[in-house]
Amino acid sequence: MNSDFRRNPGLRQALHDWWNGLNDQRGDRAQLRRAHNITAVVLTPAYQRVYRRLRAAGWRHAADAPVNDRLAAIVGLLAHVETHGDASLPQAMSARKPGDDRPAVSPLRFQRLLESPDLDALYSGLRRVLPLLQRPASIVALADDLLCWGDDVKKTWAYDYEWPVQKAD
Rank of each mutant, 00 (worst) to 15 (best):
F5E: 09
N8Y: 03
P9M: 13
G10A: 10
L11E: 01
Q13G: 05
H16I: 12
W18D: 08
W19R: 04
Q25W: 02
R26T: 09
R29K: 15
R29D: 04
L32K: 08
N37P: 02
I38W: 01
I38V: 13
T39V: 12
A46C: 02
Q48Y: 10
Q48C: 07
V50L: 07
Y51V: 01
R52K: 14
R52P: 00
L54Q: 10
R55N: 13
A56Y: 03
A56W: 03
R60G: 01
A63P: 00
A63I: 08
D64P: 00
V67C: 12
R70W: 06
L71R: 02
A72W: 11
A73T: 06
V75Y: 02
V75N: 01
L78W: 04
G85Y: 10
D86G: 15
P90T: 02
P90H: 01
S94H: 11
G99D: 00
D100R: 12
D100H: 09
R102N: 09
P107I: 05
L108R: 06
R112N: 07
P117H: 08
D118S: 08
D120S: 08
D120H: 10
A121D: 15
S124H: 13
G125S: 09
L126D: 11
Q134T: 14
S138F: 05
I139N: 04
L147F: 14
W149V: 11
W149G: 09
W149A: 07
W149R: 07
V153M: 06
T156Y: 06
Y159H: 08
W163V: 12
P164H: 03
P164V: 01
K167H: 14
A168M: 02
